[in-house]
Amino acid sequence: METLGPQIIFWAFAALMLGSAFIVVHGKNLVRSAFSLLATFFSAAVFYVMLGADFLAGVQLLVYVGGILTLLVFGVMLTNRIYNLNLETQTFQVLPGALVSLAVFVILTTVVVRTPWSQSALIEDGPTTPIIGRALMTEYVLPFEIASVLLLVALLGAAMLVRRRTDL
């Protein structure tokens, strides 16, 4: 009975994740796709918790759901003045696309199952925030600084692109 709980949670959220992801890529309505994406991101966060990555789960919710998804919804709304009109998207090349991605899935799954991953003893669960924080300030200090340059340039670039005037 003890192991049944995590199993149910895993399968439920795996189904939710893949089902909502399917709506994202196959739905006809952009707004619906955006909201399905919410479910996908949330299920991923649940996975992170199950894998003992509590900090990452929080970041996933804050950045993906609070940031990226909001941005996408704004994008959907802003690029459609009257938003229940012209939101329909048409899909082409569905069959070749489906075949290619199915082949990729089969290959990846075969490889994943056949490869003997060298699994070590599981680490004990505990809060990961202090460990990650310390790593960012010691071993990963250079990537941390580079990420700040990246954020600066993304901010600058995005602001430049959406500003209307070209001479400033």
């Binding site: 994740m17 893949l18 992801a21 399917f22 994202v24 890529v25 196959h26 952009l30 796709s33 996908t40 996408l72 994008g75 959907v76 690029t79 998207t89 048409q90 899909t91 082409f92 090349q93 569905v94 070749p96 696309g97 489906a98 290619v100 991605s101 199915l102 990729v104 899935f105 990846l108």
Partner: peptide, 17 residues
């Protein structure tokens, strides 16, 4: 999930999608 994403990239026309 990766394959679904790939499927979306290959078949969708809308940039946001």
């Amino acid at each position: 999930l990766f394959s679904l994403g790939l499927y979306g990239v290959l078949t969708r026309k809308n940039a946001i999608n």
